[in-house]
């Protein structure tokens, strides 16, 4: 195993075509593309970043064929540290689906992971979901919010770095030693501060 202090697992959720894969590819660009999605049904990418002089390894997992799930249940993400819910800001249907995706998540909210709402494709001109609508939605559901463009790499780095630093902060506040990066109690959350977390517009 390579040298890192923290390992965080991030799970991506969202309709087909919202740019999940692009987003990750943009972030991990050329770093680690196993690309087994087509034969295993799950793809993951890894990138190690440095935050406050500490190495943090991010593993980002993307399941193919999510459309078959009406909603994501807790077992799907309970071993993850963070959950990124993605929609396409030019597509109302992908935004409407958020409620479905979240239905179960909200209902069984006792085991929360860090949740981030991402409106992707801000490079496109035909926006259908105003920024504040996404922001409101995120606030209502106790999520962080960010808009990105995988195409132009806007906010992509920022998204993952912020997830990593928040998770790291959580981990540290729980007094996790570097010897067991896996054993963090990742299902608990520290108090959140939505306003600190960013929205780019």
């Amino acid at each position: 195993m390579e040298d890192y202090k923290f390992l965080f697992k991030v799970v991506l959720v969202g309709n087909a075509g919202v740019g999940k894969t692009c987003l990750v590819r943009r972030f991990t660009q050329g770093m680690f593309p196993p690309g087994q999605g087509a034969t295993i049904g799950v793809d993951f990418m890894i990138k190690t970043i440095e935050i406050d002089n500490e190495k943090v390894k991010l593993q980002i997992w993307d399941t193919a064929g999510q459309e078959r799930f009406r909603s994501i249940t807790q077992s799907y993400y309970r071993s993850a540290h963070a959950l990124i819910l993605i929609y396409d800001i030019t597509s109302q249907p992908t935004f409407d689906c958020l409620n479905d995706w979240l239905r179960e998540i909200d209902e069984y909210a006792n085991n929360r992971v860090l949740r981030v709402l991402v409106g992707n494709k801000i490079d496109k001109e035909d926006r259908e979901i105003p920024s504040h609508v996404g922001q409101d939605f995120a606030q209502r559901h106790d999520m962080r919010y960010l808009e990105t463009s995988a195409k132009q790499a806007d906010n992509v780095e920022k998204l993952f770095v912020q997830i990593a630093s928040e998770l790291m902060e959580q981990a540290k506040s729980k007094g996790i030693s570097s010897d067991s990066p896996q054993s963090l109690p990742f299902n608990t959350r520290t108090s959140k501060s939505i306003n600190d977390y960013c929205c780019n517009r």
Partner: peptide, 20 residues
Amino acid sequence: HIFIPVLPQSLIDYLLAPMP
């Protein structure tokens, strides 16, 4: 969920998946 009755060596990292 992930269902791999026989996992090849090259895909061993899939054991780290956070999903069931």
